[in-house]
């Protein structure tokens, strides 16, 4: 069992402004834990989380990956940070970036937060370079205005307000994620039935050459949550 990252430094005041890890977060952690051997074997150079919020998910994957690639020779100091992977974390909410930073600090995980929308200014340099992409998006269906306002305000509502079918933000990212993923890259996405999971999967395969599996699904109260994992379809590595 990989321990859940230590979040005791985050307070109720932080969670007034930043998404508090909930069932969707934990389902994503469980999906990553279930894939831990594959993830270690992948030895990712770059991990990119969109919408990192508290930083819980990236700190968790850093725990999974951290020790696996330690150099065999003994180091004479006890290192404060592991450095086998870069953990880039974006969020539109500036306070989320601060929380991600402190969560990294408290978990000896070198998380590098960037306050931007989606992959923002990283996209150009990260072209086909990212080995692990993670996104637990604002997936709740709302009227479009509500999602637009939330994106403008960059506050807590941006954590869930997803516009039509809850796909307003996610769709923008799905258009671009194929350009970010390395050939061996994988992309984990949280979704709910209102997002039309079969439709997402069909479209990603047809338009972007990304094939997917449902790694986990779970009912939590009124929500039915899914974690999808996308990889490049065999023979599709030359598209995009």
């Amino acid at each position: 069992m990989i321990p859940t990252p230590d979040l005791r430094h985050l307070t109720a005041q932080d969670y007034d402004r930043v998404y508090e890890p909930a069932e969707d977060t934990f389902l994503l952690l469980d999906a990553l834990e279930a894939d831990q051997h594959d993830l270690k074997r992948l030895r990712p150079l770059i991990s990119l989380e969109i919408g990192s919020g508290s930083g819980c998910v990236s700190a968790f994957i850093a725990k999974i990956l951290g020790p696996s690639v330690r150099t065999s020779r003994p180091t004479h100091f006890s290192p404060s940070l592991t450095s086998s992977t870069v953990y880039l974390c974006t969020d539109i909410n500036p306070h989320a970036c601060r929380c991600t930073h402190s969560t990294g600090h408290h978990n000896a995980a070198p998380l590098d937060p960037i306050n931007t929308s989606l992959a923002g200014p990283l996209a150009r340099r990260l072209h086909r370079a990212v080995d692990v992409v993670l996104f637990n998006p604002p997936y709740v269906p709302t009227v479009p205005d509500e999602a637009d306002d939330a994106q403008q305000a960059r506050g807590i509502a941006g954590a869930w307000a997803g516009g039509v079918d809850g796909m307003g933000v996610t769709d923008q990212f799905l258009e671009r994620v194929g350009e970010l993923m390395s050939d061996r890259g994988r992309f984990y996405l949280v979704a709910v039935p209102e997002n039309d999971v079969p439709g997402i999967r069909e479209r990603m395969l047809r338009v972007h050459g990304l094939q997917s599996e449902i790694v986990l699904s779970r009912r939590a109260g009124r929500e039915h949550l899914f974690v999808l994992r996308f990889v490049r379809a065999q023979g599709a590595s030359q598209t995009n």
Binding site: V69, T71, P79, L81, S83, R125
Partner: peptide, 15 residues
């Protein structure tokens, strides 16, 4: 301070 990992650095050089 961060842990020194030559393999990571060599892998990252081209980027």
């Amino acid at each position: 301070e961060a842990e020194f990992n030559p393999d990571f650095l060599k892998g990252f050089m081209p980027k």
